[in-house]
Design a protein around this nucleic acid. Structure first.
Lengths: 120, 120
DNA sequence: CCATCATATGCCTATATCGGAATGCGTCAA
DNA sequence: TTGACGCATTCCGATATAGGCATATGATGG
């Protein structure tokens, strides 16, 4: 087997940095393809391809506006990501984080020490 | 070019569903490789490979415990993801979400009128 | 030293990617 | 209709993946 398709979930879709940048740009409002391509320094075909992936996983939507096609953000598609991440929040937030870090450092330090006597 | 390496970021590392499951399991505490492999129904080599990726991006850490190697969660590596996602929070939370949904439904309904073979 | 358990790594194949270049297709204006 | 514009879709090549399998490495107890 190979890697899962980029269109299989939002997780895979946003693994590509340029697609993440597209989404960030779209936070500012709808945009035509060529404008996105220019702002991100990529070719128009590449932009179209990335947008296709984002559309297939439901992260953007299109709207025809004359000759142009305006792409807009559909951030609801990011919710699965947010929810999955939420399950880990307690591991890095607030004092819990510092406690965890402290415990880790203790363990690490203990491993790096010779099994010598306990001082004091 | 091909796809970015799975070890290039946390984004790419967690694109793989089984790696996500490993992280979820590790929320319950440290675990040896074989146990993870069994619980997730994958071979031991596969588990080791996934754990290698997760370790290279700093999402897990290892600790030798006799014959075993205990893998533990290092959720700090998920922070970039959380922060990136944070930039989109206002787009799906609260009434903003409902308004957006409403507008989407309107547009979708309007587009289903012509015999169009739209997206899937 | 040897046998055994726990884990890591190597080799292999099929597959899907990103990127570039060329081209197809739809829309608008004259 | 013709031309120009905006965008989508091909075809191509190089690359790295997930997974199966075999094997190397490493620690432990006799």
């Amino acid at each position: 087997m190979a890697r899962a398709a980029t269109t299989s979930d939002a997780f895979n879709a946003i693994a590509e940095p340029q697609r993440r940048e597209i989404l960030v740009l779209l936070r500012g409002g709808e945009r035509p393809v060529t404008e996105l391509a220019q702002d991100l320094g990529m070719s128009q075909p590449q932009a179209s391809k990335h947008l296709r992936v984002l559309r297939e996983v439901g992260l953007v939507r299109v709207r025809g506006a004359g000759k142009q096609r305006l792409y807009g953000l559909d951030a609801r598609g990011l919710r699965p990501l947010h929810e999955w991440l939420g399950g880990f929040e307690r591991f890095w937030s607030g004092s819990f984080d510092r406690l965890d870090e402290y415990v880790q450092d203790l363990k690490q330090a203990r491993r790096e020490e010779p099994p010598d006597g306990d001082d004091q």
